[in-house]
Design a protein around this nucleic acid. Structure first.
Length: 151
DNA sequence: GCCAACGTTGGC
DNA sequence: GCCAACGTTGGC
C-alpha cells in the first residue's frame, strides 16, 4: 500500500465537500499536469492512502485523509465541452487525461500547516516543501508518519 | 495583488 | 530541437 498527497483549493472542493459527497466518494478529475496524471494512471491502487491538502487558502496544509477506491479511468471532464477542464485533444478512443476516485476517511485533528512542515527536518525532501506545483505526489512512509504525528 | 517557479506553446 | 514568450500555480 502506497501513500500520496493530492492538492485541492478548499474554495472549490474541500475535505468537507469530499466528506459530504455521496458515500464520501468523488472522482479526482480536472488534473491537467502530465506528471500528476501519470501517478494517477499508472501507480495509484485501490486502498492507497491519500493526504488531502488545502492550497491557495488562508492556512495551506494537510486537512485530512482519503483512500483510493477506484483505479485509473479516463477523466470524464476532458470530454465535456461545458466543463472548464474540457480538452478537445482528449477523445474516448484515445484519452489524454485520467483520474482516480477517492473515498473520505477522516479529517485530521487539526490542519497541519505547510509553514510547520517546512520547519520539520524529516519533511525537507517533499516536493510540497520544495515548492513544486505538482498536484498529485507520492509520500514516503516516514513522511506520512511525521505528518500524522504533527496533527 | 505580487511575484517566483516552472510547465506549455509555437516560431524558427 | 532550441528557446523566448506566455500562462498557471500557489505561498506570502
Amino acid at each position: 500500500m502506497a501513500y500520496w498527497l493530492m492538492k485541492t483549493e478548499p474554495d472549490a472542493f474541500s475535505i468537507d465537500d469530499l466528506a459530504n459527497s455521496p458515500d464520501g466518494v468523488s472522482g479526482w478529475d480536472g488534473v491537467r499536469n502530465y506528471q500528476a496524471r501519470n501517478f494517477m494512471r499508472d501507480d495509484m491502487k485501490v486502498g492507497d492512502q491519500v493526504f488531502i491538502y488545502h492550497s491557495s487558502c488562508p492556512e495551506p496544509g494537510v486537512a485530512g485523509i482519503a483512500e483510493v477506491c477506484r483505479e485509473a479511468y479516463p477523466d470524464p471532464s476532458s470530454f465535456d465541452p461545458e466543463s472548464p477542464y474540457y480538452d478537445p485533444k482528449s477523445t474516448e478512443e484515445n484519452p489524454r487525461w485520467w483520474c482516480v476516485s477517492v473515498r473520505f476517511v477522516r479529517k485530521l485533528n487539526k490542519v497541519v500547516p505547510l509553514a510547520e512542515m517546512k520547519l520539520n527536518p524529516a519533511l525537507q525532501d517533499m516536493a510540497l516543501v520544495k515548492r513544486s506545483r505538482l498536484s498529485v505526489m507520492p509520500v514516503q512512509p516516514h513522511e506520512w508518519e511525521t505528518i500524522m504525528a504533527m496533527a
